[in-house]
Simulated scan of single mutants.
Amino acid sequence: MILEVAILEIKPGLAEQFETAFKTASSIIASMSGYISHELQRCIETPNRYILLVRWQTLEDHTVGFRQSPDYQKWRSLLHHFYDPFPTVEHYQVV
C-alpha cells in the first residue's frame, strides 16, 4: 500500500466552496483502479489548510492510472483553481 499525502492551501474565503467541490471530486478518485481509501482533514490552527491522504495499492495506480486518466481532468477542473500555492504531493510506504 502507498499513502499519498498532499497539503492543500486553499485561497482565502473559498474553503466552503472547496469542501463542496471536493465531495463531488471524491467519487472520481474513489472509482479509480487501485484506490483503497481517502480522507480530507481541515487544519484547526490554519482553517484554509487541509491535508489529503489517499491510500493506493501501488504508486503507479496514482501516478499513471489516475494522473494520466481522462477522469483526472475532471478532478483538476473541480479542484485545482482553489489552491494557492499548488500543493506538493508525496508518497509514503510502511517501514
Results as ranks from 00 to 15, higher is better:
88 T>D: 13
60 E>P: 01
32 M>V: 02
82 F>W: 06
78 L>R: 13
16 E>F: 04
22 F>I: 04
6 A>N: 12
45 E>F: 09
70 P>T: 02
41 Q>G: 14
23 K>P: 01
28 I>A: 05
21 A>R: 15
1 M>I: 11
27 S>H: 14
21 A>T: 07
73 Q>W: 01
59 L>F: 10
25 A>T: 04
23 K>Y: 04
73 Q>S: 09
58 T>I: 03
23 K>L: 10
4 E>L: 09
44 I>W: 07
1 M>F: 06
66 F>E: 00
39 E>Q: 14
64 V>L: 06
84 D>G: 05
58 T>P: 11
11 K>H: 07
46 T>H: 07
19 E>W: 02
13 G>Q: 07
18 F>P: 02
52 L>K: 04
27 S>V: 07
40 L>K: 07
26 S>V: 04
4 E>K: 15
73 Q>F: 00
28 I>F: 05
10 I>T: 02
25 A>L: 01
53 L>P: 14
81 H>K: 14
40 L>M: 09
65 G>Y: 01
29 I>L: 00
56 W>A: 06
6 A>S: 14
22 F>S: 12
59 L>I: 04
61 D>Q: 03
27 S>T: 12
27 S>C: 07
48 N>C: 11
41 Q>T: 12
74 K>G: 01
56 W>H: 09
36 I>V: 15
7 I>V: 12
23 K>E: 01
47 P>M: 13
13 G>F: 05
19 E>R: 00
8 L>K: 12
87 P>W: 05
50 Y>D: 14
